[in-house]
């Protein structure tokens, strides 16, 4: 065989035909690391998860507390889980918009020519977003505490946080699919908000359902957001794991089961 002057590394390394699971995990973590590096230079990406809880939590508490519950203190056990769900669920749209923006960038072409797992950039994005959800959750709880919320759930508070984060993560698969298929990031944002804005408000997040007109009450009753809110309230305020918890968990699992394969398939075709 004539000596083809292969540079040193490849001469000693076997060429491989696939990526191992361990490499896939490590590459996904590297992609999450990259997303965090990017976040450091684009602080505006933190605005929604940081400012929304800080501004909206006290605002809603003081505006609606008197009207809905006869006082801020009395409203907080109802409001905090509700606003937490709305904030975190809405911020899940960002997964789709950043994925869309990323896939248009030149660097994405480099990823596609590297011997890495195809799924790593997507997995990395989903991983980073979980961190964003955790930040939004912690800040909402903190703001709630500052305005006087004293939850009695104890350790179940953590479970409540995990439930909200997991549900938002499940939903981010939907936005990721939209991100892969849509033409612009703006479209993803627009469609996402159009779905989530009514869904989060036409629920029991801010008001008791029995104050709604009957037809709307039926809708709010069935709205999956209401189930998540109720489950979160039960956990945070009383520390009980009720039916709603399991219903929500099952719902989120179904979303992942349906959308994860769809997203991965659409993504692999484009990536």
């Amino acid at each position: 065989m004539t000596a083809i002057p292969l540079p040193a590394k490849l001469q000693s390394t076997e060429l491989r035909t696939h990526v191992s699971v361990r490499e896939t995990v490590s590459q996904s973590l590297t992609m999450a690391f990259r997303a965090l590096l990017r976040l450091r230079r684009t602080p505006e990406q933190w605005f929604d998860v940081v400012l929304q809880p800080i501004i909206f939590t006290p605002m809603f508490a003081f505006i609606f507390g008197g009207a809905i519950a006869g006082g801020v203190e009395a409203y907080l056990p109802m409001l905090i889980p509700g606003i937490l769900v709305q904030t975190v669920v809405t911020t899940s749209i960002v997964t789709g918009t950043t994925l869309r923006e990323d896939m248009e960038k030149g660097v994405f072409d480099r990823f596609r020519t590297m011997p890495i797992a195809r799924i790593a950039p997507l997995a990395g994005a989903l991983l980073t977003d979980s961190i964003r959800y955790a930040i939004a959750t912690a800040l909402t709880f903190l703001m709630g505490w500052i305005v006087g919320w004293r939850p009695e759930g104890g350790w179940a508070l953590l479970l409540a946080a995990l439930l909200v984060i997991f549900t938002a993560w499940a939903l981010s698969w939907v936005w990721a699919l939209l991100g892969v298929l849509a033409r612009t990031a703006g479209a993803v944002q627009g469609i996402g908000l159009m779905i989530l804005f009514p869904l989060t408000f036409l629920s029991n997040a801010y008001v008791p359902i029995d104050t709604l007109p009957e037809w709307l009450g039926v809708f709010a009753e069935w709205n999956p957001i209401s189930h998540l809110v109720t489950a979160t309230r039960e956990l945070a305020n009383a520390g009980t794991v009720g039916t709603e918890f399991w219903v929500t968990l099952a719902g989120a699992a179904v979303i992942v089961a349906v959308f994860a394969p769809l997203t991965v398939r659409a993504y692999m075709r484009k990536a």
Partner: peptide, 29 residues
């Protein structure tokens, strides 16, 4: 993909992060 390196017409690096951070990310991958 293990045999090639591609440098595109439009620089395929991450613009938001620094030069060394780009190379660290690619090296880690």
């Amino acid at each position: 993909r293990q045999l090639i390196g591609v440098t595109g017409q439009y620089a395929s690096v991450d613009e938001k992060i620094s030069g060394i951070e780009n190379l660290i990310v690619f090296g880690r991958l």
